[in-house]
Amino acid sequence: MLGHEAAEEQRLVRQAQEMTGEASWLFDQLDIPVGARARAFVAEHGLHNVELIIV
């Protein structure tokens, strides 16, 4: 499987950890309401029997 060697997995985990700060800052700048993507997914898929509980 592509990218499934232990060294590659460790590199990807380390990269994600290193980018956490920048990613958090970027999402704060986008000002996306909490649960917006989930609400859009539910609406787009016509999931009328789904209730979102956003904490």
Rank of each mutant, 00 (worst) to 15 (best):
I53D: 11
E18Q: 15
A38G: 08
F27T: 15
E5D: 09
R14A: 08
E8R: 01
H45I: 03
G21Y: 02
I53Y: 10
A43M: 00
W25P: 01
E44G: 04
Q29H: 09
R14L: 06
I32V: 12
R37A: 15
E9S: 06
G35E: 03
W25A: 12
G46E: 02
G3R: 05
A43N: 00
I54N: 13
A6V: 10
E22K: 01
V13C: 09
E18M: 09
R14P: 00
Q10H: 14
A40Y: 07
A7C: 04
R39F: 00
F27L: 07
R39P: 03
R11P: 07
A16C: 11
G35W: 01
E8P: 03
G3S: 11
V13D: 05
Q29M: 06
D31K: 13
A36K: 11
Q17C: 14
E22N: 04
L47G: 03
E51L: 09
I54Q: 14
L2A: 00
L26H: 15
I32P: 13
H45R: 15
E9Y: 09
I53Q: 14
E5F: 13
V34F: 11
E44A: 12
A40S: 00
L2Q: 00
V50P: 01
E44C: 04
R39C: 05
R14G: 01
Q15T: 15
A38L: 01
Q15S: 13
R14Y: 07
E18H: 09
E5Q: 13
A7D: 14
A40F: 09
L12Q: 04
M1R: 05
F27H: 13
V34R: 10
V34C: 09
E5P: 05
M1D: 07
Q17K: 14
A6N: 05
V42P: 06
W25D: 12
V13I: 04
M1Q: 07
A43G: 04
R37I: 03
Q15L: 13
A36S: 07
E18F: 11
L12W: 03
I53P: 08
G35M: 00
V55Y: 14
I32D: 11
F41Y: 09
H45F: 06
L30G: 07
R37D: 12
R39T: 02
M19T: 02
A7V: 06
L30Y: 03
L52T: 03
V42E: 02
V42T: 11
L47H: 10
A38R: 05
H45Q: 13
E22W: 08
H48D: 08
A16G: 13
L2S: 00
G3C: 11
Q29E: 09
E22F: 04
H4K: 13
E9G: 02
R11V: 04
L47P: 06
I54L: 15
E44Y: 07
L52N: 01
A16N: 12
H4E: 04
L2G: 01
A7W: 05
A6M: 01
